[in-house]
Amino acid sequence: MDCGICYAYQLDGTIPDQVCDNSQCGQPFHQICLYEWLRGLLTSRQSFNIIFGECPYCSKPITLKMS
Rank of each mutant, 00 (worst) to 15 (best):
Asp2His: 04
Cys3Thr: 00
Gly4Asp: 04
Ile5Val: 08
Ile5Leu: 15
Cys6Lys: 00
Cys6Gly: 00
Cys6Gln: 01
Tyr7Met: 12
Tyr7Asp: 09
Tyr7Leu: 13
Tyr7His: 11
Tyr7Glu: 08
Ala8Lys: 13
Ala8Ile: 04
Tyr9Pro: 03
Tyr9Phe: 07
Tyr9Lys: 07
Tyr9Leu: 06
Gln10Asn: 10
Gln10Pro: 08
Gln10Cys: 12
Gln10Ser: 11
Leu11Gly: 01
Asp12Thr: 04
Asp12Trp: 03
Asp12Gln: 03
Asp12Glu: 06
Asp12Asn: 03
Gly13Phe: 02
Gly13His: 05
Gly13Gln: 07
Thr14Cys: 08
Thr14Leu: 09
Thr14Gly: 06
Ile15Glu: 07
Ile15Tyr: 13
Ile15Val: 09
Ile15Gln: 05
Pro16Gly: 00
Asp17Met: 04
Asp17Arg: 01
Asp17Gly: 03
Gln18Ser: 05
Gln18Lys: 09
Val19Ala: 08
Val19Met: 09
Val19Tyr: 15
Val19Cys: 04
Cys20Asp: 01
Cys20Val: 00
Asp21Tyr: 08
Asp21Met: 15
Asp21Gly: 05
Asn22Trp: 04
Asn22Ala: 03
Asn22His: 03
Asn22Gln: 04
Ser23Gln: 11
Ser23Cys: 07
Ser23Asn: 12
Ser23Trp: 10
Gln24Phe: 09
Cys25Val: 01
Cys25Lys: 04
Cys25Ile: 06
Cys25Ala: 00
Gly26Ser: 07
Gly26Glu: 08
Gly26Ile: 08
Gly26Asp: 04
Gln27Gly: 00
Gln27His: 03
Gln27Ser: 05
Pro28Glu: 07
Phe29Gly: 00
His30Tyr: 01
His30Ser: 00
His30Asn: 02
Gln31Phe: 10
Gln31Arg: 10
Cys33Arg: 00
Tyr35Cys: 04
Tyr35Gly: 11
Glu36Thr: 09
Glu36Arg: 12
Glu36Met: 03
Trp37Leu: 12
Trp37Pro: 00
Leu38His: 04
Gly40Thr: 09
Leu41Ala: 08
Leu42Gln: 14
Thr43Asp: 05
Thr43Gln: 09
Ser44Cys: 05
Arg45Thr: 15
Arg45Ala: 14
Gln46Cys: 08
Gln46Arg: 11
Gln46Val: 14
Gln46Ile: 12
Gln46His: 05
Ser47Ala: 10
Phe48Asp: 15
Phe48Pro: 15
Ile50Trp: 10
Ile50Lys: 11
Ile50Asp: 13
Gly53His: 01
Gly53Ser: 06
Cys55Trp: 02
Cys55Gly: 02
Pro56Ser: 00
Tyr57His: 03
Tyr57Phe: 14
Ser59Cys: 15
Ser59Arg: 15
Ser59Asn: 07
Ser59Val: 03
Ser59Gln: 12
Ser59Phe: 10
Ser59Met: 06
Ser59His: 14
Pro61Ser: 04
Pro61Leu: 09
Pro61Asp: 10
Ile62Trp: 03
Thr63Trp: 11
Thr63Val: 04
Leu64Met: 08
Lys65Asp: 13
Lys65Val: 08
Lys65Thr: 11
Lys65Ile: 08
